[in-house]
């Protein structure tokens, strides 16, 4: 059995974010990138499934710029056997829909029986791509999975829902998105870091999977980007409580226009 793991390279959330000079994009020069943390859980679950003798192969798949290879190496060092890398040469402005189209197209030739993905990517927090991929591949999916058990041809999973858990059994092939708590992702060991460089990264272009940049264009135009304003007014309000509440409301409404 073959397991695919959808993986995304995202800026480390501990980075300091700055808006670019065009006021429409995030400055990427000084950002540190990592594997989206939920994807680490997805990969860990896949590796554990293989280690339990229930799968033969784990591969990661990602769409991104050339630099995404760095994150792929991390995945290989954690224990993925190989990687499929769809290179977004055109740096197309694709979004969730386009990304899902790309991943689904690339996955068709691989035909994995089991797909894991993080429940969301920590950069855009959209929680859309894996579900869209499942739809495009016409396979069932379960999201926010906190427990996973593979039996003969079926998977028994628990999903987190408001105030409880949802237990379900699904036939494979299927896709699952992982939530924190399902496992503890391992650190790549030094020997595995060294093995990683010998593992295969299969590079595909959009053309290889029968898509063009136009096919996956987002159709979204960003007008402006701004960071939330963060400063202290250092304003001390006088008077009794009622007066101060009135003043505060007036500042928030009229001066700062946040209400």
């Amino acid at each position: 059995m073959k397991i695919a793991v959808l993986m995304k390279r995202v800026p480390d959330t501990a980075s300091v974010f700055k808006i670019g000079a065009d006021n429409k994009s995030v400055e990427t020069d000084n950002l540190k990138y990592v594997m989206s943390p939920y994807d680490e859980h997805a990969l860990e679950e896949a590796i554990q499934t293989k280690e339990a003798g229930k799968a033969d192969e784990v591969f990661v798949i990602t769409v991104g710029p050339d630099a995404a290879k760095e994150t792929i190496r991390t995945a290989l060092a954690m224990g993925a056997d190989r990687a499929v890398f769809v290179k977004d040469d055109a740096a197309s402005d694709t979004n969730c829909k386009g990304t899902a189209m790309i991943l689904a197209a690339a996955l068709k030739t691989e035909a994995p029986e089991l797909i894991f993905a993080g429940k969301q990517a920590v950069d855009d927090d959209a929680s859309q791509v894996p579900e869209r991929v499942a739809e495009l591949l016409d396979i069932p999916h379960a999201s926010v999975v906190t427990s996973f058990e593979l039996n003969d041809g079926t998977a028994l999973v628990e999903r987190e829902i408001e105030g409880g858990h949802y237990k379900m059994e699904m036939a494979l092939p299927a896709l699952f998105t992982t939530q924190k708590g399902i496992n503890t992702p391992r650190y790549p060991t030094l020997p595995n870091i060294m093995k990683a460089k010998k593992k295969e990264i299969k590079e595909l272009t959009f053309a290889d999977i029968g898509l063009s940049a136009a096919d996956v264009a987002s159709g979204v135009t960003i007008e402006e980007m701004a960071l939330p304003r963060q400063d202290r007014l250092n304003k001390i309000l006088d008077g009794d409580n009622d007066e101060r509440v009135a003043q505060l409301l007036s500042v928030l409404r009229e001066e700062e226009k946040v209400l």
């Binding site: 060092a77 650190y187 030094l190």
Partner: peptide, 15 residues
């Protein structure tokens, strides 16, 4: 090298 960069990040993660 890519491997040396990975050494830095992974060591830091454990530490």
């Amino acid at each position: 090298s890519e491997e040396q960069e990975m050494i830095r990040t992974q060591v830091r993660q454990i530490a």
